[in-house]
Design a protein around this nucleic acid. Structure first.
Lengths: 214, 214
DNA sequence: TCCATTATTTGACATATGTCAAAGAGCGAA
DNA sequence: TTCGCTCTTTGACATATGTCAAATAATGGA
């Protein structure tokens, strides 16, 4: 048996492989594949996960979360691009972006179960997979390997945030921009310069001047 | 039976309580008590944890970790105070402190298993509990509730880092200092001002001027 | 195509913070 | 106490970055 859409040939065995499971959850393949890079997750856990995932296709400009609310969803971003920002003195301050294969939520609010100041808005049309806070807690409780995945993803995201913290804290604007150019040039091609400026912690005018004197 | 040191009265039952376990691991009580605030951990897990914990009492000035090495330990700081710093252009840049009841490690190195640029140095005499990376992984693998504890602690520390990131990124030096004064005044009483300045991302001179114009 | 809107650049100037040097304060050891 | 060290403050000046305003460039819809 072959699944044309995926180009996967299926052979029935007692313990179904990850490839076989994607027959049932074929559209979740990008997510499942991504997960398995970090931690081995059993088929039964993937099955439970697949049962509570909800696919969402939203247009550019839509909001995943707005300030003042408790965030009850975490998302896997399969396709597209979005930003987290908050309002400061009437200005929108963008402080992170997410692209393909990123997990996305208003982290503070999702973890602490309190309302925050963050907004999450799509900067491109997106394909997302959502899971509720409650469903995630249930998966954590039922499946040790899901808990492990959560632990490992939290570690990864912590390390990334720490690197960014150090960069912003102790390097000059020009250096931060040049680091971004080499480490994540795709950001500059996909989002307006004004967003990138506040991501780098500087004004749009300063970023413009840095670019012109490059 | 009563343990005078702890003031705990013991009654033998089939399933020993946390109070009974502290008879065997009495000196680990601060750590166990702290842990239970975040997540319920079974006695059998605490027992496994206690079996691999090692108590360390080190003097002010000692190093827990130095740059260029892979960090293989995570510590629970029961008493004392220490700092994380790295060398930048011949200057020491302190970027975090830890006090009583904090978990401490060179996070980047501990997680990624790569050498980093971080140094960890005691700024007071300290009482610590150490556990190796390998022992921790084993505990994670054997005990779902230990994995859960790891997942939850990672979440907490992520949220704290995010708050600090936002504060440093988008607020002025004076405001950051004033926030520190209200949220963590103990820092200023326990570490030299020069350390606090680099923690706030400013020079010692600037911090001194902020204080004089308060 | 042209227009309206948004995104980006440029200019003039203000200000926060850094740098370097030196003076003053605090504090422990002999 | 006095000495020698470290910690903290102060001064003079340099520089990075912000602010506000305006000009220019890019973009998408009618």
């Amino acid at each position: 048996m072959t699944v044309p859409e995926l180009g996967i040939k299926i052979t029935r065995t007692k313990t179904p492989s990850i490839e076989e499971f994607v027959v049932y959850f074929s559209s979740m393949k990008p997510l499942f594949t991504h997960i398995q890079q970090y931690c081995e997750v059993s088929n039964s856990t993937l099955k439970s996960l697949g049962a509570v995932l909800k696919k969402e296709e939203l247009p550019k400009g839509a909001f995943l979360h707005t300030e003042g609310k408790v965030c009850s969803y975490i998302y896997f971003l399969e396709k597209g691009c979005l930003r987290g920002f908050y309002n400061l003195d009437g200005k929108e301050v963008t402080y992170w972006f997410a692209f393909e294969n990123n997990f996305v939520t208003s982290f503070f609010s999702f973890i602490t179960r309190k309302p925050g100041v963050e907004n999450i808005q799509l900067t491109e049309d997106c394909t997302l997979w959502s899971i509720t806070y409650e469903d995630l807690q249930e998966l954590y409780a039922k499946h040790h390997d899901m808990e492990r995945l959560g632990r490992i993803m939290n570690e990864r995201y912590y390390v990334m945030l720490e690197e960014r913290f150090l960069s912003n804290h102790f390097k000059e604007a020009r250096e931060r921009y040049e680091n971004l150019l080499t480490s994540a040039p795709h950001i500059l091609q996909r989002v307006p310069l004004g967003y990138v400026a506040s991501y780098l912690g500087i004004t749009q005018e300063t970023l413009s001047r840095i670019r012109s004197k490059a």
